[in-house]
Amino acid sequence: MESKILNLLSENARMSASEIALRAGLDAAAVEAAITDLEKRGVIRGYTAILNESELEDNKVKAIIEVKVTPSREGGFDQVARRIARYPEVIDLSLVSGGFDLLLTIEGNSLQEVASFVSAKLSTIEGVLSTSTSFMLKKYKESGRIMQSDEEYERLKVCP
């Protein structure tokens, strides 16, 4: 039951308990109780909207930063990651496999603000060995949603 509820909420976080119950073939009161329990247990951490940022007036600058870290003896990667996660500029932070250890998404008001975060805050943290920053230029898809309408993707017709 929980997985059905979570899948439907992931699809549309504004879906009501009665709509979830109808679509999943469950009792509405049971769905409401399950959602409350999932929130209390911390499985559901919050609800968010998927924004088409190109339509907003106050576009923020977003960057993806790859970080190489020396894990500490006491806390491994977690200690460094918890310290980085405290910065309000950090939107997402994940431990990953591959050529680097942590993957961050950060947000700032300008390129200079993002650069300042990297040079003055991130790179000075003990255990951070190196960073590689890429600026987000355009989003095509987020959380399974295509950001532009299909008409914008239509190919031009070629006439012989």
Rank of each mutant, 00 (worst) to 15 (best):
M136Y: 00
A29F: 04
A120K: 15
E142S: 06
S132G: 02
L26T: 02
E151R: 10
T105E: 13
I50H: 07
E11V: 03
V118R: 09
A28N: 06
N109Q: 11
G144W: 03
K157C: 00
K68G: 06
E66A: 15
V128S: 07
V118L: 06
V96W: 03
A21S: 03
R23G: 06
C159A: 08
I125Y: 08
M136K: 00
I20Y: 09
V61A: 08
N59K: 15
E142H: 01
A17D: 10
T36M: 05
L6I: 13
S16N: 01
L6P: 02
V31M: 01
G98I: 10
A34S: 14
T133C: 09
R86T: 03
I5V: 15
I20E: 01
V61Q: 04
D92A: 13
A81D: 04
V96R: 07
M136W: 00
I106V: 15
A34P: 00
R73C: 00
G42T: 15
S72Q: 07
F77M: 12
S72G: 09
Y140A: 09
E113M: 07
E39K: 07
M1L: 12
N12E: 13
M147D: 09
E2A: 14
K68D: 15
G98N: 10
E113L: 05
S134M: 11
S116I: 02
T36Y: 08
I91V: 15
G42Q: 14
K68E: 15
G25M: 02
E151H: 05
I91R: 13
A120V: 08
N59W: 05
E55K: 15
L156M: 01
G144N: 01
I84Y: 02
Q148H: 08
G127H: 01
L129Q: 15
I64R: 05
Y47C: 08
V90R: 06
L9G: 11
L104Q: 07
V158D: 07
